[in-house]
Design a protein around this nucleic acid. Structure first.
Lengths: 339, 339
DNA sequence: CGGGGTATTGAAAAGGTTTTCAATTGTAAA
DNA sequence: TTTACAATTGAAAACCTTTTCAATACCCCG
């Protein structure tokens, strides 16, 4: 059923065997213009018999669609991005599309290189997960009329194609969970605030506090890069500033670092301090104590990006996409204060 | 410095501006045949000025190199494969090569599809991490004269291009570590034994035992798929069979499942039973107790595969590659018996 | 200065598809 | 039966590069 194609047949061979001109075969292949039904059927039969597929290079040379999508992610060492790519791939495979994969390594130059690559290779569409490169460079891509979807980034001009997590909601839910448990003094380790995602989570945190009648205290918030070491150091800073019974970390790695710092300070998690993370990486399930966190639906995010792109390609206009919502996963790192 | 190319210049434009024929430009580009030094210099200057790059589709159409490598991995949800791909990408990027990425989803049909894709797209080389497809299908690829590297798989005909971890050694080192701690009754949860890697780890285990003057006991070994649930069930089976003070799990996930089962049975790790894993995924560092394990150098494996392929492409013949050696990482899940 | 050879160079073909444009066929109306 | 159109179809050009083959330029020697 998945027989390899007979050697390398060209459209000429198919045309000859079907008794038509190559132009007609092409028309059947692309569904363009009118080909008389009986003739089309005959051509289709020959195509199927030999499992013929047009040479992608000849097509590309004419500026046609290439059947390849470009995907840019910062890296693949973190399962986070791997899962997103997996989500993308599953959807695309179904449509017979392929994936040209590039890593940005958190470097604006490499991200730009990747875009250049994608242009040169005439990809049919782009899925970008790039923090470093500036809006202008991305917009320039758009002028090449390549459909494009951004993940975790907002460019106002491209808003309908920006797929994001509802981070405000996530920050709110995380904080709310701690409030519901009875915590009143809740610290927050934010990710780098130049990142919109980190800012949004902070916003959600503040909103939840205010809604509970608490004024957010400046000294309870520290900023850190998204890493375990960062979390460790940030938590130490917090501990030096005053007391708190709960901590909302901007992501799971920060949470792990923070837990290490708390443990080192002789504080028990969650007995003395509750900790909640964000993203729900695999290790959140296995670390000790197992981390309460907000689940980032990575596969789903990738799948949506792919479907969005396919829709654009078909000229369907972007699907109305609500922002994806993170989901609270309660494990063992949070509890009522002093329990 | 990384200026995008001026619109889309063709080799004709370059030729005209340099006052030579397109054939000469082509020769300069590819370093073929003799072009008089001064002329070559002039051409190079024009190429550089416009940052011209030949159209990859026109090249592909002529059966030339495409500058793209195919990479097939089972999936990307597990950081394991993501890290390998990252290692590959880093090396390739340096050479200006790109990555067509396909997932096999542990399905022989999808793996075959991927190979077909790679053939159709005329990739310059292949890096395969595929367990399901049979040797013959892979060897058939080889007849297309595409350089190819296999990771974690041995096909005798392709031996010089098979890049593997020294699993026997790993199994030996793991068991030896437990023996050195003073354990005598050491159980093993093996991965699926139709996988060579799993068999090799088992071999290493047995060798170490024999070397220590212990006869491997059949009932101390169970087989399981590589998953947490599998580890949990396998460990329960072991517990039903008799007593042991240490357990060597075929990989980290198995170890985690086993630890859950041990905990459920009221046995402490490592106080009552020591557990050692394999691979050293991120979670091994963070789970509780932190897992002693053998580190699989994933980035290095990917990087070597890429360098190997590049060497083949340059016709250098395969680098003499010793099998990569896993490294023991001692954490908190192992200790002397009864301590 | 002529001959033989080598080193450079360019013209043209090839590679497989799509698309334009003109030609042909078929159909319906007169 | 003829005319006017629309529906199909095919020939040929175009896309951009590499490579073959023949031609030209250059060099050294006699």
């Amino acid at each position: 059923m998945n027989r390899p194609p007979d050697q390398d047949l060209t459209i000429l061979d198919i045309a000859r065997e079907a008794g038509v001109s190559p132009a007609t075969v092409s028309r059947v292949l692309n569904g363009t213009a009118g080909v008389r039904a009986d003739k089309a059927e005959r051509v289709r039969a020959v195509i199927a018999r030999h499992n013929y597929r047009p040479n992608p290079f000849a097509r590309g040379l004419l500026g046609q669609q290439t059947g390849v999508f470009g995907v840019l992610v910062p890296q693949l060492e973190d399962e986070f991005y791997g899962k997103i790519v997996t989500g993308v791939e599953r959807e695309l495979r179904r449509e017979g599309m392929h994936l040209l994969c590039s890593l940005g390594h958190d470097d604006p130059g490499e991200e730009a290189q990747a875009l250049e690559l994608f242009r040169e290779r005439q990809v049919d569409g782009l899925i970008l997960l790039a923090d470093q490169i500036d809006d202008a460079a991305i917009l320039r891509q758009m002028e090449q009329r390549v459909p494009l979807v951004l993940i975790n980034r907002l460019i106002p001009e491209l808003e309908p194609h920006c797929l994001r997590l509802d981070n405000v909601r996530g920050g709110y839910d995380a904080t709310r969970h701690l409030l519901d448990l009875g915590h009143r003094r809740i610290a927050h380790i934010a990710g780098p605030l130049e990142r919109p995602g980190a800012r949004e989570r902070l916003d959600g945190y503040r909103t939840a506090l205010r809604e509970a009648g608490l004024e957010p205290l400046e000294w309870l918030v520290v900023e850190s890069e998204f890493s375990e070491d960062g979390g460790y150091l940030a938590c130490k800073r917090l501990l030096g500033r005053g007391e708190f019974t709960a901590l909302f970390a901007g992501n799971d790695q920060l949470a792990l670092g923070a837990i290490a710092a708390l443990r080192e300070a002789g504080l028990e998690v969650p007995a003395t301090v509750s900790v909640i993370g964000f993203d729900d990486r695999t290790l959140a399930r296995f670390c000790f104590p197992a981390l309460t966190t907000l689940h980032y639906p990575m596969l789903e995010m990738g799948a949506r990006a792919a479907r969005h792109l396919l829709a654009l390609l078909r000229g369907e206009g972007p699907p109305a996409l609500s922002r994806l919502r993170p989901e609270l996963v309660v494990r063992s790192s949070t509890s009522a204060p002093g329990s």
